[in-house]
């Protein structure tokens, strides 16, 4: 088990991502079209932190929502019999039509969760664009999906697992990698 990101590095990574978002969406109306959607569970607090970071830079309030992708998973019918994954609430309190959606997740791995999230988002409307933010990209993609903003690129082997801990949920800010 090794800690690959501590609270300080996490804070700086998210601050850098906030700046990159404003650089990449620098057109006159772009900022007004931005909206953050965090993927449950840990994408939601990360999205809120990025919203706070952007507010700190230019005083803009970026609308923020939460997305649960359980009902869109491609592996629901494949798992051995057991309890179904818990479905939690999706809360997107704004129209995503013609918005630049910043989709936020903690770890990017196979890309299948992001595929499900894209399907789920499209059911809410037709955004102008969807950009992907991840705190950690650990590689091993199974689908043609790439993040637009990455907190940290983390080379891993398939036998390892990456755990993101956030103060809001786990009481501390930390990313660790462990042999499973």
């Amino acid at each position: 088990m090794a800690i690959v990101m501590d609270a300080d590095r996490m804070g700086r990574s998210l601050a850098r991502i906030a700046h990159e978002i404003l650089e990449r969406n620098a057109g006159p109306t772009d900022v007004d079209e931005l909206a953050l959607v965090g993927m449950r569970t840990r994408g939601v607090p990360i999205a809120k932190r990025i919203a706070a970071a952007i507010r700190g830079i230019n005083a803009h309030e970026i609308p923020t929502g939460a997305l649960d992708i359980t009902l869109y998973r491609d592996d629901l019918m494949r798992h051995a019999v057991g309890p179904q994954p818990l479905v939690r609430r999706t809360e997107i309190p704004f129209s995503i039509d013609d918005k630049r959606i910043l989709l936020v997740d903690d770890v990017l791995y196979t890309g299948r969760t992001i595929r499900a999230a894209l399907d789920a988002l499209i059911d809410f409307g037709r955004p102008k664009a969807i950009q992907l933010i991840v705190l950690v990209d650990r590689g091993h993609r199974e689908l043609p999906i790439k993040a637009d903003y990455v907190g940290k690129n983390l080379p891993t082997s398939l036998s390892q697992s990456v755990q993101v801990h956030l103060t809001e949920i786990d009481g501390r800010d930390e990313v660790e990698i462990r042999e499973s």
Binding site: V87, T90, A120, D123
Partner: peptide
């Protein structure tokens, strides 16, 4: 689970592929 399901009924497209 029903709490989460109720939100689907409030969407413009009231359908999920589950």
């Amino acid at each position: 689970t029903a709490e989460a399901m109720r939100e689907i009924g409030q969407r413009p497209i009231k359908k999920v592929p589950t």
